[in-house]
Structures are given as C-alpha cells and as structure tokens.
C-alpha cells in the first residue's frame, strides 16, 4: 500500500533555523496520526510541509504521490489545512466566506452550507460578519471551509483549540468519518487524552525529529500518548 505521506530525512529550514531536522515518517491511507511534542518541536512545520506551503530544504517528501521537492503546488488543492489562523475574511459574512472558499477550491456553495450544518454552526450566525463571531464559532466556520473542500489529507493543528465540548465531539466525529472513507488525518495536539481517543497512531516530535515510533499495534493508544 502506497503511503499518503512519505518523509525520509526531511529537513525544512526556516530562516537559519532547522524546524525539521531529518524526519522519517510514513502514513498509510485512512490513518489518524497524532503528532505530539512540546512547543517549537516542529509539528506545525511538518503539517505545513505536507501541505506544500513550507519548502523542503533537503531529503525526500512525497505526499499523495506528489514529490514536494518538485511540485509542491500540485498537492495543495488536495489537502485541507486547519492551522492557528482562521483563514477567513473578517468583513464578509459566514456564508460569503464559505461560498468564496468552496468555489475557489472547486466545490459548490451547497458544499459550503452543508459543511456549516455538519459543524453545527447555527443558521442565525450565517448572515453575520465573521468579526462578530466568538473564537469558537470562527473555528467551526474555518473547519467547515476545510471540510467543504473534501480533502484527501487533513492537516490539523490543534483542531480542538477554542472549541466547547460539543464542538470537540463534532471534530472527532468528522476525523473518524474522514478516515472511514479513506481520507488520512494528521493532527497536532497537546490535549492528549482527547487526541488519544481519536488517533489510530501517535508519534512524538522533539527538536525537529521524530523521537518515538508508533506504539505496537496491540497497545492501547490512549496509554501510549499519555505522557
């Protein structure tokens, strides 16, 4: 089975700082992989590298069959990235944002609205400008914009941050559902109890390198990812 993400000695240098210092990793289709590690470990850089946004400095990186060293732009349309930013226009309404991002990504406005429903964004909020929403509501709208794209690879940086319990449950359900239909999920999280429940495998990244391999297949994952 061909890996969705295949990294060998992958190095990404930001300025003069090697944010990734030789990463080896393979992720299979349908996996939900948790990246754990301290702040500044390189989790966000790894997600951005897989999205084709952070350039590969050396090594090998193949994502969804695309060699990132040669054609990083070719993978971008096929991945969904949820980072610390909202990726939303503050002055546009929720539906105007969703319509724009859905259509820009080759989806339809109906896909965008369906995604808003999936994320539990109340209809009374749809006509409000994004700047009028709470941080948690914005996070749900951002997630909806990503889901509407129907990405093959989900790259999520702290996906539970800023969400209430209901929102976190929705995110977990969406990750499991994506995995069940063949999409692959990489996510970084510090909330290890919750992340351990949804992840099918976990790796630890420290100082730009992966320091712990996947736990044995028969090991309870929640225990494996709890520090």
């Amino acid at each position: 089975m061909e890996s969705v993400v295949h990294l060998r000695s992958a190095v990404a240098v930001l300025g003069r700082f090697p944010a990734l210092a030789g990463v080896d990793l393979d992720v299979d289709p349908g996996e939900i992989l948790l990246l754990r590690g301290p702040n500044g470990a390189g989790k966000t850089t790894m997600l951005r590298l897989c999205a084709g946004l952070t350039p590969l400095s050396s090594g090998e990186a193949v994502v969804l069959g695309v060699d990132l060293a040669r054609q990083a732009h070719a993978v971008r349309r096929r991945v969904g990235l949820l980072g610390h930013a909202t990726y939303l226009y503050d002055d546009l309404t929720v539906t105007e944002n969703l319509d724009f991002w859905a259509r820009a990504s080759g989806a339809t406005t109906a896909d965008g609205r369906a995604a808003l429903d999936r994320l539990g964004v109340a209809h009374r909020l749809w006509s409000l400008p994004v700047h009028a929403l709470s941080a948690g509501q914005r996070r749900r709208v951002s997630f909806a914009a990503m889901v509407a794209r129907r990405p093959e690879l989900w790259l999520l940086d702290e996906p539970h941050a800023g969400l209430d319990a209901a929102g976190r449950d929705i995110i977990d359900g969406l990750m499991r559902e994506a995995s069940s239909v063949g999409a692959t999920v990489l996510f970084a999280s510090h909330e290890l109890d919750r992340a351990g429940d949804v992840a099918t495998r976990a790796v630890e990244i420290v100082g730009g390198t992966i320091t712990s391999p996947a736990p044995p297949a028969d090991a309870p994952l929640a225990a494996a990812v709890t520090p």
Partner: peptide
C-alpha cells in the same frame, strides 16, 4: 492587507485558483 491577515495568503495558495 486583508489577504495578509489571518493566514489568508496560505489559504489562497491551497485553492485551485
């Protein structure tokens, strides 16, 4: 300026535009 806010340039790069 609006494209530089809140990661929107990255989001544009991830679209098919």
């Amino acid at each position: 300026g609006v494209e530089a806010e809140d990661g929107i340039i990255d989001a544009l790069r991830l679209t098919g535009l």
